[in-house]
Design a protein around this nucleic acid. Sequence first.
DNA 1: CAAATCTACTAAATCGATTTACTTGAGCGC
DNA 2: GCGCTCAAGTAAATCGATTTAGTAGATTTG
Lengths: 371, 371
Amino acid sequence: MPRKKSRPDTGKTTEGSERRPVSLKELAAHLGLSPSTLSLVLNDSPAASSIPQTTKDRIFAAARGLNYRPHFLARSLRMQRSHTLGVLVPEISGGYTAEVMSGIEEHLLKAGYFYIIACHRHKPELLDGYPKLFVDRCVEGMIAVDTPCRAEMPLPVASVSGHDDVKGVTNIVLNHAMAAQLALRHLVDLGHRRIAVIKGQTFSSDTQVRWDSIRAAARALGVTIHPSLVSQLESDSPSPEVGYLATQKLLRSSEPFTALFAFNDVSAIGAIHALQEAGRRVPEEVSVIGFDDVDNAAFYNPALTTIRQPLRQMGRLAAETLLARIAQGAGAAFPEIVTVEPELIVRQSTARAQHLVAVRPRARKRLGSGL
Amino acid sequence: MPRKKSRPDTGKTTEGSERRPVSLKELAAHLGLSPSTLSLVLNDSPAASSIPQTTKDRIFAAARGLNYRPHFLARSLRMQRSHTLGVLVPEISGGYTAEVMSGIEEHLLKAGYFYIIACHRHKPELLDGYPKLFVDRCVEGMIAVDTPCRAEMPLPVASVSGHDDVKGVTNIVLNHAMAAQLALRHLVDLGHRRIAVIKGQTFSSDTQVRWDSIRAAARALGVTIHPSLVSQLESDSPSPEVGYLATQKLLRSSEPFTALFAFNDVSAIGAIHALQEAGRRVPEEVSVIGFDDVDNAAFYNPALTTIRQPLRQMGRLAAETLLARIAQGAGAAFPEIVTVEPELIVRQSTARAQHLVAVRPRARKRLGSGL
DNA sequence: CAAATCTACTAAATCGATTTACTTGAGCGC
DNA sequence: GCGCTCAAGTAAATCGATTTAGTAGATTTG
């Protein structure tokens, strides 16, 4: 492509933004000054203190007039700062991730940062490879969303819903103990004692903590969770079908239950499907409680009772702490854990237990026998 | 921060990947060759043809051994290629966008490209500003998703569901005529004649085309759409509530209807809510058909009949055509429109019309009188 | 044997900024 | 009038690559 060295310097074309950008050198030539001077002035460097205001004004005016835009790559190379983060997620679609990303972007772009994104889809080679690609791309930090961080990274990392204890990683986590308590207490208050649980997929980073918290909360409330009332999400799919299948498994067991605590809203929706298909009305016969409070949980039919995770806020916090860490430099101390609080959202998928009498165990006395 | 010029050259640390990356110059020094030679060899340049294979092997071995990674910013600056695209979307959350992005990323990362993302949230200043920021960031092209492109850009643009006729933009669009036909014919085949329509928000780029297509299809089928059976999504929110409100408006009109064609699945869900709340059963009394076929449309209650847009494919096509255009250079011809086909997905939210007799107009004779 | 051709490289310019270390001339004190 | 400081800038190095134009020595060719 032929580049014209000089083009008619009309100062005003019909389209103001049409012409290709002016370089600092060209701008300097235009002004009869050196690039150094312009750089000092335009960046308001202390070394520009001796430049008289009139010259500064000339420079600013010319920069504005010729629409000078500093070349991002050149500047980044020189400053060794890309103003870019890498965000690693399992999958973009499916509510959860998108919500977190939304919080991330809200904060980042305000601060003049962009981010590049990669989905690992739980494939080990991508889980390893993308962080390296990010480093190769000169990102200044990485945010991992619902993604295991095993290897230590040469740059600051924030992990949303990460529970690995790796050096250099700030974990943004929900208060899971509280979440489990809120959910179970809600069910117990409604009279439920035979509570089924759907655990998350093994690859989901919250699965283990959540399950531990549920067991702890159950113990504290004097409820036993029968082993055959525990199911688990198996396949990797953003569809409610996974929860549907897990619930069918529960239904095949002979063990009766009046309430179901699903790993997330999507699987709760699948669960309700399975229950209704099996002729069990929700919430009249079985209460179902979800997790996350995704966008349309409120509009599902029945509207989902759920534990809200402040996903957007978690994304924002990840972005905030990461930028703060970057601004402070590698040496400084930083929080290893940032905790956010869950909220119980009561809607229509949970109701008072019906067959309380038949089921009620001598609750407070048989602690932890089931598990 | 103090920079050490030389660090202990141990050659092997405990962790192979711990040390900071080696530059080409360092690698060259290590080998007793010049950076030029290494560059030619490593990039397999034709100019390296005279370098004997033994030397090449030495170079490759050293690069591998010292874990040489070319500096992204330096290379990009020199080559004037950032291998980065910009993606502009209204909002990240809410199914539609995430699905498209998923298709984009699938293709892009395979091709060695990354993308940065920005959400304009329909704010005019961001709609103007972000494309400029993208250019400042040296992206090689831009993908706009469900976003108006009014201004001509100095780089290739692909627009998913864009309908603006702007120079340099490839529009990836659904065959809307077909989509409207599929939906209306389905309803008409079920015996529906009094069909309500919920139009999209004015800012949504599909709103106008879709509405035009619906009117055309209705005319072709000999159905009139009564003006008071047309409602419109108003506020900017990813929640089904918007459709809920639009439907309430329809219900307040005295005009009866037995079917409702919603602008998208999310609003269809809100619509069903409003209908049920008003005591009208879906699909027994009112059939509802959505649009998009988002992830959990199948699992809604009742499962949504809808028109599927191949969103992921549209994202992939946008990425593909854009990369092809970039590879060809600015001069080459490129497709201005790429069309994809919709698909009717029949589920449980539509059913045969009940009160056919009272309603049937002398269909084929009163063409277009209503609108 | 001189010229031409190869082989195996390298020097230096370039991409577009930033930044440190000068320079040059003027004013000022003594 | 000598040295000093200050004002107003500039030259040159640098970031880490890529790429064009050479170069020095060996080998072939006429």
